[in-house]
Design a protein around this nucleic acid. Structure first.
Lengths: 162, 162
DNA sequence: AATGAAATCCCAACGTG
DNA sequence: CACGTTGGGATTTCATT
């Protein structure tokens, strides 16, 4: 996991991409249904899915949970600026954010802003406590800016597969 | 889908949350394994999962695909400012972003910035074309700022279930 | 909520182009 | 080498108590 860009070694043909388009939306689709949709046998579909899982092309199979259902009503996007951009500092920040359960997503970005995080919290009080723990109480965080989500217009992980 | 905050009607007990913690990481876990992990019968697990799917608590079951594997190496976070915040304008923007396949995620946010998007592209050339189509060529977009991801430190949809 | 039966699905082995 | 067909084993699903 040390390398940010781990190239996927397998070459995907149009069958693979067609399968991905389906399981991306519903990975519980029966292989028989997939098979007839892409005009392949169930065994071929099975082999390709297994290969793509092993190659890391399918990273994992997840049930996507509605945050509101479990009282995590606050979604916030946070821009975080570090005090410096030395490798050691950046790595410490990455480790911190990766380990924090409240941090649903974390991107290290260009453009002056060092990180963009997506944080999910039950309410504002807890959110404020989280920001204090992750940002205010860390010397290597110079500043941060919170954008509170009023509407999760689109909040999946779906990709437009070419 | 008109209401941004659709309250989930079902009340979750600790069994439900325990199940969610498991299927969130791997929704292909056999029900028997879930059952013994949470100390319930397989039938009970089965019924609870079905109920949570019907209630929308489990929004969908997805295979998460590695963007690099399908030549979508550029991930970008974009802040978008609208020319005005009238309802009609905001709704038009929401519809546009929701319909765009390149837009993986879209949040309508407070704090002066109207939207935060996550956009996935095969390369910079295509990314630039996308920004032109979605932002530069739309009169209701006043400005936007791109933050290119150097590292997807954490890029799932997992929630810390309380 | 638990039990058991029926249907379905997954997966490995074999044979073929 | 990858595909398709076939069969056994496991899992999900439904009906009953």
């Amino acid at each position: 996991m040390a390398n940010p860009l781990k190239a996927a070694s397998r070459t995907l043909d149009s069958f693979d991409r067609a399968i991905l388009r389906i399981v991306q939306r519903d990975n519980k689709t029966p292989q028989r249904a997939i098979a007839e949709a892409v005009h392949l046998s169930t065994a071929a579909v099975q082999r390709r899915i297994a290969a793509m899982e092993k190659a890391g092309i399918i990273r994992w199979n997840a049930a996507l949970v509605d945050p509101d259902a479990i009282s995590l009503g606050i979604t916030s996007i946070v821009e975080v600026h570090l005090s410096d951009e030395r490798t050691a500092t950046v790595d410490r920040a990455k480790a911190l954010f990766r380990a924090a359960p409240e941090v649903q997503q974390c991107y290290y970005v260009t453009g002056g802003t060092s990180f963009v995080l997506v944080i999910v919290s039950p309410d504002m009080r807890v959110y404020e406590a989280t920001t204090r723990r992750l940002f205010s109480e860390n010397a290597f965080v110079a500043s941060f800016r919170s954008l509170i989500a009023l509407d999760r217009v689109k909040a999946g992980m779906e990709l437009a597969i070419p």
